[in-house]
Amino acid sequence: MDNDSFSIIPVNRQLQLKKVMECNDFTNQFGLQITKQEALELIQAKQEALKEQQRVEFGEGILPKLIYAFCDSPFIDQDNYVETLTSLQDIFYLYKNESLDEWSDDELIEYMKHYFDGKCMGSLEYLEETVLQNLSREIRYGIRRDTDDTI
């Protein structure tokens, strides 16, 4: 099976759309809502990020987890919500690769959230180019592995 074969694996968009839309019930309390159109665009962007990072995803995908984790961030509001989620998806897949898949989805999201709200003060650039880069370097050199040490 070559790389192109994985990029054309049919995505269960209906399931993913349903799961993303269901998140609205929870994010309402933080004043965050996603329209159906926005959700479809996010899913499309996710597919492109996956292709870019040469990854293949199964099941409902990572979006609902990102939404639940980041919806209470003081640096996210309705105006930057979809844009931030799009960037977070890109960053997530990039650093799944960069960290050599050493961290689980939950561990990486937890780490991202911790620094996004803390040291990064909501800066996606700082999160991507400094914090996560340092993290992946440390993982590659075998310096740090445990989230407890880092957060």
Binding site: L50, R55, V56, E57, G59, D101
Partner: peptide
């Protein structure tokens, strides 16, 4: 993990 690299998937 919900995703793996193409290499691992292959």
């Amino acid at each position: 993990s919900t995703s793996v690299t193409y290499e691992k998937a292959r």
